[in-house]
Simulated assay, not measured.
Amino acid sequence: MLDRLPEQIEPMGLADVGRSFRGVVPVDQLNRLAPLLASKQGELDVELEFNIDERRIRTLKGRIKGEVSLVCQRCLDTLSFPLDLGFRLGIINSDDETVQLPEGYEPMLVTGNPLRTFDVIEDEVLLAIPSIPIHEGLEQCQAQTDHVNKPVPEKDNPFAILEKLKR
């Protein structure tokens, strides 16, 4: 296993020769993920293993570990979201091959052109994070939402004088 992630990968060829990689991905390099983050700080530990399984299916097995900072949609405070993802992709050339993949494999459609390694990793992270991130317990958000739940003092209505004219 090589201790450095390549910038680009060609999944078919790597599966044919059985290559494995391990490395670190800076969160600030995941551009499509950036709008969902409270902070771009941190790193993700990644392992990628290309192989051909016993059914002669080219595969990419991977693991992503780390933490990303999301915005809680209940209190708008930072939410630390731990990642420990395992994934298994079946590398295919066409949509028709999707039906041939056994259960447990997600399709990875390749065209023969090299893929950006960080894009493949980013796809898996985007699939793992919740569409509406919120803290697990209401008590974690309570401190942030206390100011919202306090009653607002009633102000004098500037149109109250019109009420008198109406009579």
Rank of each mutant, 00 (worst) to 15 (best):
G66A: 08
P26T: 06
K155M: 12
D123G: 13
C75I: 00
Q142A: 14
D45R: 06
F50L: 02
G62A: 04
V148E: 12
F50S: 08
E97H: 08
D28R: 09
R55C: 07
I161G: 13
L109G: 11
K150H: 13
E103S: 07
N93D: 15
H135Q: 07
N149Y: 10
N113C: 03
D28N: 14
T98Y: 08
L165D: 09
T117F: 11
D123Q: 11
C141R: 11
L83Y: 02
L126M: 15
R167G: 12
E122S: 10
L33T: 10
L89K: 15
L30E: 02
V17P: 09
V152F: 05
L76T: 01
E163T: 07
S94K: 09
E154V: 13
F50T: 07
I92V: 15
P130E: 11
E139S: 14
V120Q: 15
L60W: 01
L79H: 02
D16Y: 04
L165M: 09
L138Y: 13
L76N: 00
V68I: 10
E154N: 10
R116A: 14
T78Q: 01
G13K: 02
R22I: 05
A143S: 14
P102R: 00
D53Y: 12
D84I: 09
F21S: 03
F81N: 05
F21A: 08
K40T: 15
S131L: 04
Q142D: 11
P114H: 08
D84V: 05
